[in-house]
Design a protein around this nucleic acid. Structure first.
Lengths: 144, 144
DNA sequence: GTACTTGCAAACTTTTTGCAAGAAC
DNA sequence: GTTCTTGCAAAAAGTTTGCAAGTAC
């Protein structure tokens, strides 16, 4: 079974456990979230879901995204401008690089982040539950 | 001369050089930005400015904040909910801790961040111009 | 059949904009 | 006096909500 299908099934199970119903619209939203690395906005999720379900309302997308967010199953990003973006592939926070030229969002690897977080929590007596680390600049493609 | 006054003068000079005019409203906004560590929203800046200039419009605050942002003189934050927040004390990005309970925003120190940024830029061939690093959780006061 | 979900429209929040009157230079 | 800025109100953009009709279970 592919990673995407596993994640969709995972989300379906988690919804069912909480007695939420699996409607075709919701399933389409889950599939969209699980299968993209593009960190889409609600509008972008909506555009994808509309292909299969043209009658879908954007309010439904907002409601489902909000539900998943409350369940801790997706990560929300706010970049200075416009709408929020979401990553539903994994619920674990991770750093990003955002190209200010082409607006592309890439997952990146910052090896020492866990240790840094632990040290900070200990030093300042914080109870840290999440983080947001974004680097902004130009990607190799735009940097010419 | 105090740091706050130096920063206000710095901003005034930079505005004048670009032929922007120093109105009493703008000066009050600059003073508010330079003198708080609270990372206020436009609404909160507006509330402070209104004390001295009750006729000030929130549109004026938006316009001045936007002007300073374009000049690279303040940092904008978007936390998942509500309005953007601003730090006008220094234009240099720096990490924050945000208490999810009392909503307090604190500047923190992450020693290795510069090195991490450099390594990342080199490895991925990014040209990094800014970053945003926020830790979320409970501060010592709320963690009882 | 019951309880939850959808889709629509209206409401709400935050931010931007057009423009006439006013102020900085 | 010229040009920029203000303040107001309207508009725009993003998100939330109430509710009747429809659907998953």
């Amino acid at each position: 079974m592919k990673n995407v299908e596993i994640r969709v099934q995972d989300l379906v199970d988690k919804l069912r456990i909480k007695d939420y119903r699996i409607t075709p619209q919701r399933l389409a939203i889950l599939k969209t979230l699980a299968s993209t690395r593009a960190h889409p906005s609600v509008e972008q999720i909506f555009d994808k879901v509309k292909v299969d379900f043209p009658t879908t309302s954007i309010a439904t997308v907002y409601k489902t995204v909000s539900l998943l967010k409350d369940m801790g199953e997706l990560i929300e990003f706010s970049f200075g401008e416009g709408s929020n973006h979401y990553d539903g592939r994994s619920a674990v926070p991770h750093p990003h690089f955002i190209c200010t030229s082409c607006r592309k969002i890439e997952d990146i690897d910052v090896p020492d982040l866990e240790m840094i977080t632990e040290k900070l929590a200990e030093k300042e007596n914080y109870q840290i539950t999440a983080f947001q680390l974004n680097f902004y600049g130009k990607c190799p493609d735009c940097n010419r």
